[in-house]
Design a protein around this nucleic acid. Structure first.
Length: 610
RNA sequence: GGUCCCGUAGCUCAGUUGGAUAGAGCAUCAGCCUUCUAAGCUGGUGGUCAUUGGUUCGAAUCCAAUCGGGAUCACCA
C-alpha cells in the first residue's frame, strides 16, 4: 500500500533537514561556479552567464579537485589564457581561503585544490544524514504511468525508478498504470478458451493466471493461422483471408457484444480478467512494484467516446460516410488517424484520450509522464497533438518517456515466434543464480537461515534491475539469455557487496558523533570518496532533469568503486590515530547511506551481509 | 516512399550545453587474502569514435552528404 501519509512523512523529514541553511546546502559544483563568477566580476567587471565557462572534476592524472575550463572566457575577455587563469586562481584563493587551498594552471585549465578542512567539515555535517542529497519540496505534482501489463520489465523498473527520483527531487508523485482490459485482444483469448479449453482454469491446471490467459491468446493465433491457410488453399487471396478468417470475425463480433453489454460475454470477461490480475499481483509483489491508482480501459474508453463526440461537434474530427470518425493530421506532418471504427467501437487512441481526461480530473498534475516503448513514439505524438487540438488544458504537460526495446542478440523479441523472455522466468532464474553464487563462494552457511531467501531475492532482483537501468533509457539494449547477467563489475551485486562490507564494519564500530576531525589531512583515496559523496545532490538533479535512472546507476557504481579502492588500501579499524579512525568511520557511514539511497531510487534493496 | 532513431575496444555500455593523452565492466594476461567480507583491489593487452567533407583555438559531441542497421506510418494494441 502507498497511503498519502507516506508523502507527508517525507516532507516533514525534508523540512527538518533543510530548516538550518549552511554552506553545504549548495553543491560544490555550483559553489565553484558562483565563486568564479564572483571573481570575474571583481577582476574584469564581467558578468558571466551559465554557458560562459565550464567546471569539471579534475582528471585523475592532474593535481587538483575541480577544474575551470577557461578557453571560452579567453575570447570574451581578450586575455591570454595563462594570464586569465593565474589572476582568476589568485583571486579565488584570496576571496575564499577557507575553500581553496591552491590552484595550478595546465594548458588553459585552472585546477583548484579544495582545502581538506572543507571536506572534513562537509563530512561532519552530512555523515549521519540518510537524506543527504535530497531536495526540499517543490509543490510540483507529477504523474508517472508505467507498466502496461503487456510491456516488459524495463518499463516497470524505469517507471518505478523515475517516480522515486522525482520524489527525491521534492516533487509530489502519483504512480499509475493502465490495464488494457478490453478490446479484440481480450476477445481473442475468450474465444479460444470457449472453444478449446473445455472448462480448464488456472486452478485446475496449476498455471499462473496471466500466463494461462496468454496461452489461449497464442491458441487463438494458431487457429487463426490454420484458417487462413485453409482459405488460401481454397483460392482466397491472402490479404482477404486474413481479414475474413471465421475465428477473427467471431472475435470481432464478441467485441461488439461486449460493448453492447451482453451479460454472458461480460461474465466470461470478468472471470478471465480476474485470472490475469491474480497473476499480475503475484509478479508485482515479487518485484516490489505498486501504484497509487490503477486505471482500466473498460472504464476510460467510454470517456474517450464522449470526447470524440465533443470533437465532432467542434469540428476537430470528421465522420466519414461509412460512419468511421477521423482526424486529419496531415497539416502537422502526420497522417489521418482513425478514432472510431465504422461499427462504432473504439480503438487504442480513443481510450487514451479518455484516460488523459480522467487522470486530470482525478489528480490535476502539472506534468504527466508516460513510460512507453519507442515503438509507440507516433502514437504518443498523436495523442498529445489531439489533446492540444481539443484544447485540453493539460495537453502540454503530456510527456512521453520513450525507452528502447530490449533485444536479443538475434534481434527483436517477437511474441509470434515465441522468443519473448518471460518476466517471471528471468526473475526466478536470477534468484537461483544468486543462491548458486553464494554457495560457490562458501558463504551460504554464514547467512542466517531466516535471511537466505530474502537475500537471494535481493541479489537476483538487484542484478536484474541494475542491468536494465544502467543504460540510457532512450537507447535500445541487448540482452543475451545465454550468458546470464553478471554479478561482478558494473553490476548491482558489486554495489550491494560494497554496502555489506561497510555494514560489517559499522556493526563493530560506530563513529563518535561529536568528535572533532577538522585537523585531519586527507589521503587521496579518502578524498576521492568524499568528492563522490558530495556530488550526490547534483546527480539526483541531473537524473530528474533527464528522467534517466542510469545517471544514478553509474554514480552508485563509481561511488562503490572509489570506496573499494579506499577499503583495499586503508584500514578503518586500525587507523594510525583516533581522529583518522573517526574520519574513516564517518566516511563509511555516509557512503553506506548514499549507496542505500541511490540503490533505493533504482528500486534495489541492499543487504546487511552477503 | 514520408517521419524519426542509432553506428565508440572482441562483447555490453559511459562520454553532461564542443575542452586535457576517448573511459568503464566483461573477456584475456600478470600480480595481491597471518589485518575491517577476494561478489574485492592493482597493473598490462585491446580504438581509423561507420565514411567523407565542413564550422574553429579545439569535434566522438555541431552541420551536410554517403554507407549500414532499426522503429513507425493498421477499422491491431
Amino acid at each position: 500500500m502507498h497511503p498519502v501519509g507516506h508523502f507527508h512523512d517525507a516532507w516533514k523529514v525534508r523540512n527538518r533537514t533543510f530548516a538550518a541553511t549552511t554552506e553545504f546546502d549548495m553543491l560544490l559544483f555550483d559553489q565553484v561556479r558562483q565563486d568564479v563568477r564572483e571573481a570575474l566580476l571583481a577582476l574584469y567587471s564581467f558578468e558571466a552567464g551559465p554557458a560562459d565557462f565550464q567546471v569539471n572534476l579534475t582528471r585523475p592524472e592532474f593535481e587538483g579537485d575541480y577544474t575551470v575550463v577557461i578557453f571560452s572566457l579567453v575570447k570574451k575577455l581578450r586575455l591570454a589564457p595563462d594570464m586569465l587563469a593565474r589572476s582568476l586562481g589568485d583571486r579565488l584563493t584570496q576571496l575564499h581561503p577557507d575553500r581553496y587551498a591552491s590552484h595550478a594552471l595546465v594548458k588553459g585549465f585552472l585546477n583548484l585544490v579544495v582545502r581538506d578542512a572543507w571536506w572534513t567539515s562537509m563530512l561532519a555535517h552530512a555523515f549521519s544524514d540518510p537524506r543527504h542529497g535530497m531536495a526540499a519540496p517543490t509543490g510540483r505534482k507529477v504523474m508517472v504511468e508505467y507498466s502496461s501489463p503487456l510491456g516488459h520489465l524495463r518499463n516497470n523498473f524505469l517507471g518505478w525508478s523515475i517516480a522515486e527520483i522525482l520524489q527525491a527531487n521534492g516533487h509530489d508523485v502519483v504512480r499509475t498504470c493502465i490495464v488494457n482490459d478490453r478490446g479484440v485482444h481480450i476477445c481473442k483469448s475468450m474465444i479460444a478458451w470457449q472453444r478449446y479449453a473445455d472448462g480448464a482454469t488456472p486452478a485446475s491446471t496449476g498455471r499462473k493466471g496471466d500466463h494461462f490467459v496468454g496461452d489461449w491468446y497464442v491458441r487463438f493465433n494458431d487457429a487463426f493461422r490454420a484458417e487462413v491457410e485453409t482459405l488460401v488453399a481454397s483460392g482466397v487471396d491472402k490479404a482477404r483471408a486474413e481479414k475474413e478468417a471465421p475465428i477473427l470475425l467471431a472475435a470481432q463480433e464478441m467485441l461488439v457484444r461486449w460493448e453492447q453489454g451482453d451479460p454472458d460475454t461480460l461474465a466470461l470477461w470478468r472471470t478471465m480478467n480476474g485470472w490475469v490480475y491474480e497473476g499480475f499481483e503475484t509478479t508485482y509483489r515479487r518485484i516490489g512494484s505498486r501504484f497509487e491508482k490503477t486505471y482500466y480501459e473498460s472504464d476510460t474508453y467510454l470517456l474517450g467516446k464522449d470526447a470524440v463526440e465533443e470533437g465532432l461537434r467542434r469540428g476537430v474530427f470528421v465522420r466519414k460516410d461509412d460512419g468511421s470518425v477521423w482526424i486529419d493530421l496531415t497539416p502537422d506532418g502526420l497522417d489521418e488517424k482513425l478514432l472510431l471504427r465504422k461499427d462504432g467501437t473504439s480503438v487504442y487512441i480513443t481510450q487514451d484520450i479518455g484516460l488523459a481526461m480522467r487522470k486530470h480530473e482525478d489528480f490535476g498534475t502539472d506534468q504527466s509522464i508516460y513510460v512507453v516503448g519507442d515503438e509507440q513514439n507516433y502514437h504518443l505524438k498523436v495523442l498529445r497533438l489531439i489533446c492540444q487540438k481539443l484544447g485540453l488544458p493539460y495537453a502540454d504537460g503530456i510527456h512521453h518517456l520513450s525507452y528502447g526495446m530490449v533485444e536479443l542478440p538475434t534481434g527483436k523479441m517477437k511474441s509470434r515466434e515465441g522468443t519473448v523472455v518471460d518476466a517471471d522466468d528471468i526473475v526466478q532464474e536470477m534468484v537461483e543464480i544468486a543462491e548458486r553464487h553464494t554457495r560457490e563462494l562458501g558463504k551460504f552457511e554464514e547467512i542466517p537461515a531466516g535471511e537466505q531467501g530474502e537475500l537471494f531475492e535481493t541479489l537476483g532482483l538487484g542484478a536484474l534491475k541494475f542491468f536494465l537501468l544502467r543504460v540510457d533509457p532512450k537507447k535500445k539494449m541487448v540482452f543475451n539469455p545465454e550468458e546470464s547477467i553478471d554479478f561482478h563489475g558494473f553490476t548491482g551485486p558489486f554495489i550491494q557487496y560494497t554496502h555489506a562490507r561497510i555494514r560489517s564494519i559499522l556493526r563493530k564500530l560506530q563513529p563518535y558523533p561529536g568528535y572533532d576531525i577538522s585537523g585531519v589531512s586527507l589521503h587521496r583515496l579518502e578524498k576521492d570518496v568524499l568528492i563522490r559523496l558530495e556530488m550526490y545532490g547534483q546527480v539526483l538533479r541531473q537524473a530528474a532533469e533527464d528522467l534517466d535512472p542510469s545517471v544514478v546507476a553509474i554514480y552508485a557504481f563509481q561511488l562503490a568503486q572509489a570506496f573499494n579502492a579506499f577499503y583495499a588500501e586503508l584500514s578503518v579499524a586500525n587507523a594510525a590515530t583516533e581522529p583518522e579512525r573517526q574520519l574513516r568511520l564517518r566516511l563509511c557511514q555516509m557512503t553506506c547511506h548514499v549507496i542505500a539511497s541511490a540503490m533505493g531510487l533504482l528500486g534495489i534493496r541492499v543487504p546487511e551481509r552477503m
